[in-house]
């Protein structure tokens, strides 16, 4: 390996002596327009531009698709939320009714109340108010107490099934706001009731069935 170094230097010296020796230097070659290479360059440039444009188009398309997808998803989510909201609200719009001068929960209203429990469990930020009502019979003053007792009975049912008591307000309207303003058994039956009002929510979701 050491020997090879001087040999390489010697060859280099020979070559340089030959170059300096000889006549005038040859004229530089006349530049020749190489159309092919221009075309090639142009083609290259064009293809780059096309590729860029293509990429931009694709990106735009992707973006549009993404946007449309997002919009569609948002719309679907909105629709789902709307449906959940409607569903929740319709569940809470269903009131419960009581027997004359009674405040115990009748069997026929238990499943509706359990539905309310599921919804409140699925919506931890949801708060409600329960308003108790009485029919026009009994004294005006007593009916205030009776409406209160009905609201408390409905609240106790929800609290018994795990809903925090501080998520439920209660109030009584006595006999002051009848649903049906008549004096017969059918009207009285409808007027003896507890109503559920959603007073605070966050986004409502359906409970997982």
């Amino acid at each position: 390996m050491r020997i090879s170094v001087p040999m390489t230097l010697g060859i280099a010296v020979v070559l340089s002596a030959a170059a300096c020796g000889g006549g005038p230097p040859p004229p530089p070659p006349t530049p020749v327009v190489n159309q092919d290479s221009i075309d090639a360059a142009n083609a290259r440039r064009d293809s780059i531009r096309q590729a860029r444009e293509e990429a931009a188009r694709e990106a735009a398309a992707r973006e549009r698709a993404a946007r449309e997808r997002a919009q569609r998803e948002a719309a679907e989510a909105e629709e789902a939320a709307r449906q959940a909201n409607n569903m929740v609200r319709s569940v809470f719009a269903s009131m419960i009714h009581f027997d004359y001068d009674r405040s115990d929960i009748k069997d026929e209203f238990v499943s509706g109340l359990e539905m309310k429990v599921m919804i409140m469990n699925a919506n931890p930020r949801m708060r409600i108010s329960i308003n108790g009502h009485a029919d026009e019979r009994g004294s005006d003053e007593y009916n205030i107490a009776l409406g209160n007792r009905r609201a408390l009975a409905a609240k106790a049912f929800l609290v018994d099934r795990g809903i925090a008591a501080n998520r439920i307000d209660t109030s009584t309207l006595g006999e002051s706001q009848p649903l049906v303003n008549e004096s017969n058994e059918s009207a009285w039956q409808q007027n003896r009731r507890a109503e559920f009002v959603i007073i605070g929510t966050g986004n409502l979701v359906r409970p997982q069935m």
Partner: peptide
């Protein structure tokens, strides 16, 4: 919710009914 008030005969004390989470 307060209702059904009554004054004592001298008008010094007011007694009333209150409907609340504790009943009436």
């Amino acid at each position: 919710q307060d209702f059904a008030p009554a004054f004592d005969p001298l008008g010094r004390t007011l007694v009333f009914s209150r409907a609340s989470g504790d009943g009436t």
